[in-house]
């Protein structure tokens, strides 16, 4: 059995004490996912000073403020575009983009698919809570049909995004989705994601009891977790299910694990080629 550091040890090592307490509500899942991420960093023995955390706007995006790393808290939806500049300028830095579903998939959807297409070397930890928590519980494009939000008082009528599915179609190197109670799989996935080159994504279904649950008759985190248990289907099982049965369900598991060269490596080769074409280098 592997020695597991206590939450306090992790907290002591990686959090900015002067920024605590966090802004997260009781029962919020962001803290758990942050724990997973820090554990993964710790297990892999990564150098704290060679990691930059990037984020956009929203509850999840406040995370880089609480961890003791270089951090860039940017504008709404644009984190991955900012990250592109950091990574290409200083390829030695590992980039973790900590994002929410509204940030990554609504306003930032375009940067998301294009960063994947380029295979930008970045690990995206995505908190999917079906809602805009910070602005007061408006419906997000990930919300399943019928769910309520302050801007969908009569229930969402739009179709939801499958973020992980979209990432696979756009060509990401590694894509996994878990809910916050799949903590072992979650940590392992983050470790895998951090160890690969190119674009990697780990999406977490994460409870927001205050802004989301309260409006959907699930006021507490345990209720939300039970609901996740009900609506999630492991990939292996899902493969055997007809599409009708999967309506309203969310598939969890590893969806992609491949090794296309990342943008950094491609660009290095590009520079060499340029110099060669100009006759500057053999």
């Amino acid at each position: 059995m592997m020695y597991m550091k206590s939450a306090y040890e992790i907290r002591d090592k990686y959090l900015r004490k002067d920024m605590l307490p966090t802004i997260f509500c009781p029962g919020c899942g962001i803290g758990s996912v942050l724990q997973f991420t820090l554990r993964a960093i710790d297990d892999l023995g990564l150098n704290q000073d060679e990691i930059v955390w990037v984020s956009g706007i929203g509850c999840s995006s406040r995370v880089p403020g609480f961890v003791n790393f270089d951090g860039l808290h940017t504008t709404h939806g644009r984190a991955l575009a900012f990250a592109t500049g950091i990574k290409l300028t200083n390829p030695d830095l590992k980039i973790i983009a900590f994002m929410g579903d509204g940030d990554a998939a609504a306003i930032g959807g375009n940067h998301f698919i294009h960063a994947i297409r380029r295979n930008l070397d970045v690990t995206v930890i995505l908190i999917n809570n079906f809602t805009y928590g910070m602005t007061g519980g408006q419906v997000a494009p990930t919300a399943l049909k019928g769910l309520r939000g302050t801007t969908a008082p009569y229930g969402q009528f739009e179709n939801p995004f499958d973020i992980a599915g979209l990432a696979v179609a756009a060509g990401a190197n590694y894509v996994a989705r878990w809910s916050v109670f799949n903590y072992l799989q979650g940590i392992n996935s983050i470790k895998k994601a951090l160890s690969k080159e190119g674009f990697t994504l780990v999406e977490f279904l994460s409870p927001c009891p205050i802004s989301f649950g309260r409006r959907n008759r699930m006021k507490t985190a345990p209720e939300l977790l039970r609901w996740y248990q009900k609506i999630t289907v492991p990939l292996a099982k899902a493969k055997k299910m007809p599409p009708e049965e999967l309506e309203g369900k969310i598939v969890i598991g590893e969806f992609a694990d491949r090794d296309r060269p990342g943008l950094v490596r491609e660009y290095e080769a590009y520079k060499k080629r340029a110099k060669k074409m100009m006759g500057w280098e053999e």
Binding site: V54, A81, F82, T89
Partner: peptide, 18 residues
């Protein structure tokens, strides 16, 4: 980049990387 929003975002990121 995919648009101008991303372009200015990327250069800000690059500036912070030095």
């Amino acid at each position: 980049m995919e648009d101008e929003i991303a372009s200015i975002a990327a250069i800000i990121g690059a500036s912070w990387a030095g």
